[in-house]
């Protein structure tokens, strides 16, 4: 099954189960979604539940907030995380805060889905990642789906939750192949140990998990150690339990993210490790991230700016050698 098909199936199942579940966004209806995630749903559930909206992100989220206040369970789609900037007032001031400010009288059972990250030559205005901003807003749950199984289960659980959820996807993952374990009762808040190891902990999320997995063989051969790869899955709250047991085991932490390094999301993981696990560390934590420039359009420059499997392997090996491996 493809990643986008898993998302489609999750939404479809929830819409079939609960008529309060509605979806809205640009091109989600007749066009089937920019990335075909909502394909076929308008034919099945009609235009009242699958709503094509104008190009107006603030009102997409604003309408979803209103629907959720009225008891519906809306799933809003923002075409890319880059456009979510237009909806930030609704997301931060309303979606995240109404439950708190109403002393729990208002619940917002809603999900805002959006893909982010660097795709392929979409240029600076369509290549950003905003998980660092979205995860810094108290009141929002932020999930990041890097694989097909998690995408399916976590989106279903997100729709079921009474709390507002930001559901992050990645443009290059929509056609990723994978299996869904339908019998699993997946905990979407739990980080996923993609590969076990006891020499280095590499933490990542979204598409970078695949890049890290591609680099792991070279790193293990080069440094003669084993690598544990953790996919964070839930960016807010963070599964510190899984993180800390891995860091305690390895004493070495690497965080790989596609976002720019300065102010990037990985900083909070490194900060956690140095605040809470300082005496467990056997080497200074390493962050691998994109360079601090707007993502270039030129493919060679684009690849120069973002982490790639080759660059990840090289950097981790340099760092390992510098630090006693």
């Amino acid at each position: 099954m493809l990643y986008r098909e898993a998302l489609n199936m999750a939404i479809d199942e929830m819409m079939a189960k609960d008529e309060n579940v509605v979806i809205l966004g640009e091109d989600v209806g007749r066009y089937g979604g920019s990335y075909r995630v909502t394909e076929g749903l308008v034919a099945k559930y009609g235009e009242k539940r699958v709503i094509d909206t104008p190009i107006a992100e603030l009102s997409i989220v604003g309408n979803a907030v209103g629907m959720a206040m009225g008891g519906l369970r809306p799933i809003a789609e923002i075409m890319t995380a880059n456009f979510s900037l237009l909806a930030f007032d609704q997301i931060i001031n309303h979606m995240a805060k109404l439950r708190y400010m109403s002393a729990g009288k208002i619940t917002l059972a809603m999900v805002v889905r959006m893909p982010g990250g660097v795709s392929r030559q979409l240029a600076a205005q369509h290549s950003e990642s905003y998980e660092q901003m979205l995860s810094a807003v108290p009141g929002l749950i932020v999930f990041a789906a890097s694989d097909v199984n998690y995408a399916y289960h976590a989106l279903k659980k997100a729709i079921l939750m009474d709390d507002p959820v930001i559901f992050l996807e990645h443009e290059l993952l929509y056609n990723k192949e994978g299996e869904v374990n339908f019998d699993e009762d997946l905990d979407p808040f739990k980080a996923r140990v993609v590969k076990e190891g006891d020499g280095i902990t590499i933490v990542s999320y979204l598409k970078m998990v695949d890049d890290v997995m591609e680099a792991v063989g070279e790193i293990e051969d080069g440094l003669k150690t084993s690598v544990e790869v953790i996919d964070l899955c839930s960016l807010n709250p963070i599964d510190f339990k899984t993180l800390s047991s891995s860091i305690k085991k390895t004493g070495r932490l690497v965080v790989v993210e596609e976002d720019h390094k300065t102010g990037g999301y990985g900083a909070s993981i490194v900060s956690f490790a140095s605040e809470e696990l300082f005496y467990e560390l056997d080497a200074p934590p390493l962050r691998i991230a994109s360079k601090d420039v707007p993502i270039p359009y030129n493919r060679r420059l684009e690849l120069e700016v973002i982490p790639t499997p080759r660059k990840i392997a090289k950097r981790v090996m340099e760092w390992g050698v510098e630090n006693g491996l």
Partner: peptide
């Protein structure tokens, strides 16, 4: 459950002593 403190165990108790260990070495060392 997740916010149940992650980093606690006996090893943290000796923190003040560890910071007095002289020489250049990683905290874990």
């Amino acid at each position: 459950e997740i916010f149940a403190k992650a980093g606690e165990d006996d090893s943290q108790k000796a923190v003040s002593e560890i910071s007095k260990v002289k020489g250049k070495a990683s905290p874990k060392a």
